Amino acid sequence: MKLAILSRNSSLYSTRRLIEAAREQRHTVRVLDPLRCYMRIAAGDFAMHYKGKPLTGYDAVIPRIGASVTRYGSAVLRQFELMGTCTPNPSDAILKARDKLRAHQLLAAQGIHMPVTVFGDNPDDTGDLLNLLGPPPHVIKLTESSQGAGVILAEKLSASRGITEALRGLYANFLVQEFVAEAKGADLRCFVVGDRVVAAMRRQAPSGEFRSNLHRGGTAVGVSPSEAECEVAVRATKVLGLGIAGVDLIRSDRGPLVLEVNASPGLEGIESASGKDIAGEIVAFVAQGCPPRKPSAGRRRK
């Protein structure tokens, strides 16, 4: 298989591990910076170049598109798809997952439980909006945040009002959620590949912090998720159209609640915590699921 990895930096842990796994499984692999890919778009004629040379003949592409380049990176991935290249995470699925509000709406529509969430636009509605949610504490999240950035805990109603008004003044897109106290600052990252959870870790926030992200000083240990947790993680991944995802859950009194579905989950923390070769699982899944490359729609440009 001729495999491309879309990544801004080939030295990042996740990218390096995918390269190693691809080579161990005897695939040809190349890392492509999505910002150096450029496209020709015409009716029935799609072409892409990279640093002055055409990109052709790739059987599959694994996207590792960071949040800061979502728009352009997803356009590059879409161009690969239109040229007949297979991907486990299609461009539209990545866009769904990156927009927290959209993802929450789609998941809730399929009966997947999450912390109660509210969203509004007009400042005149702030009081009633917060009443819909219930008493504080409240968790306020930017809709395109990552790694815990842009996530704020408001412990009083006055704080929720003030933060909401400030974010609206900055024209930021955000949502407000209930705070699930019984989770005690911990969450569960389930790594989904295809139809199963291949690894999971429990992340614990440090003292004085409610965000359990490893980038925020959280600690992680490998765990065996329950059947219900595995089921909801796989379902959430499929609802958004992803083949590979990191699904963040919290354990609540009413069962597992989905916090987020990450379309480009990091490998370092969970491989270290679980001791599992997740990169190898990903490459094997891609190789098994991607058929021989289809011809490009239209004539092929040299």
Rank of each mutant, 00 (worst) to 15 (best):
M201Q: 15
R211P: 00
G169K: 05
E209M: 07
L170G: 04
F210G: 02
I163K: 01
C190V: 09
T219I: 03
V193L: 12
R161G: 02
A205R: 05
C190E: 00
A181R: 13
A181W: 04
G162H: 13
A205C: 07
G217Q: 05
S212T: 07
F210K: 01
A166I: 08
F179P: 12
G169Y: 01
I163N: 10
A200I: 03
L175H: 12
D187T: 00
N173V: 11
G169W: 02
A199W: 13
E182V: 15
D187L: 00
F179D: 08
A200G: 08
V221N: 04
G218H: 04
Q177P: 06
A183T: 03
L214I: 15
V180G: 04
V192A: 10
V176H: 04
F191H: 12
S207F: 10
V197F: 05
Y171A: 15
Q204M: 15
G208V: 03
T219L: 05
D187P: 00
Q204T: 15
A183N: 01
R216F: 03
A199V: 07
G194K: 09
F210S: 04
S207C: 09
G194T: 09
R189F: 08
N173G: 11
V176Q: 01
H215Y: 11
G169V: 09
V197T: 06
L167F: 13
P206M: 00
M201S: 05
A172I: 08
Y171E: 14
H215F: 09
G185M: 10
L188E: 04
V198E: 13
N173S: 14
N213I: 06
Q204I: 15
R161H: 15
D195E: 15
F174M: 10
G217M: 07
L167G: 05
L170V: 04
L175Y: 11
V197W: 05
L167S: 05
E165T: 14
T219Q: 07
V221L: 06
R211M: 00
R196H: 13
A220M: 04
H215A: 15
T219A: 11
S207I: 12
V176P: 03
V198Y: 06
N173F: 09
Q177E: 14
V180E: 08
A220H: 09
Q204G: 08
R203D: 00
